[in-house]
């Protein structure tokens, strides 16, 4: 059985956005802190540390999960995708990112990385969602700036384009 003492720091290896990465973490280190302060991938944000705001949402093995309520040590060996992994460069936004830009789906952008990660899984599984389904998926995120309107519009547009409507 794999055991780590509370004051030990051990190497945690993940594939972060397709790249093998390794860093030290003690058992209690939140994945969000590990990504941000150990691997210095600051794109993932922290807004509440109790699972509600959704700012910290990342994809773990393809699923949108709160990085504030899972510990780095738990994801050793797993595939993590964060906002940094979506576009090849800021000049080549993905369709989803471009739609967010077009529809003013962000203002301060603090909630945005988490929302983009949720959308990534959601749109892969729901190619033609209804507006109600989109809004229901978004209840897992708080945005204080936009009133959600632009976000909903952006997702609708990407879905429509994807499903060839």
């Amino acid at each position: 059985m794999f055991e780590v003492a509370c004051d030990a720091s051990i190497p945690v290896r993940v594939t972060l956005n397709g790249v093998a990465r390794e860093g030290l973490a003690s058992p209690r280190m939140q994945l969000a802190d590990f990504l941000r302060h150990v691997l210095r991938a600051y794109g993932t944000h922290v807004g509440c540390e109790h699972g509600i705001c959704g700012a910290c949402t990342v994809l773990i093995d393809g699923r949108a999960v709160r990085a504030c309520m899972i510990f780095a040590i738990q994801v050793d060996g797993m595939d993590i995708r964060t906002v940094e992994g979506l576009a090849a460069s800021p000049d080549e936004l993905t369709a989803l990112q471009a739609a967010f830009k077009k529809h003013h789906a962000l203002q301060c952008g603090f909630c945005t990385p988490g929302i983009l990660m949720s959308c990534t899984q959601f749109l892969a599984e729901h190619p033609a969602p209804t507006e109600a389904e989109i809004r229901e998926m978004l209840t897992g995120h708080l945005c204080r700036c936009t009133g959600y309107k632009g976000i909903v519009e952006a997702i609708k547009e990407v879905a429509a384009a994807k499903s060839g409507a």
């Binding site: 941000r36 991938a41 600051y42 794109g43 993932t44 944000h45 922290v46 964060t82 906002v83 940094e84 979506l86 576009a87 460069s89 800021p90 000049d91 936004l93 990112q97 967010f100 830009k101 077009k102 003013h104 962000l106 301060c108 952008g109 603090f110 945005t112 990385p113 983009l116």
Partner: peptide, 19 residues
């Protein structure tokens, strides 16, 4: 117009105080 702020924010390149 679209916002010049967005590209950095959408790609995880914007820097906030905790970054």
């Amino acid at each position: 117009t679209e916002r010049r702020e967005d590209a950095a924010l959408l790609t995880g390149n914007a820097r906030f105080i905790d970054d």
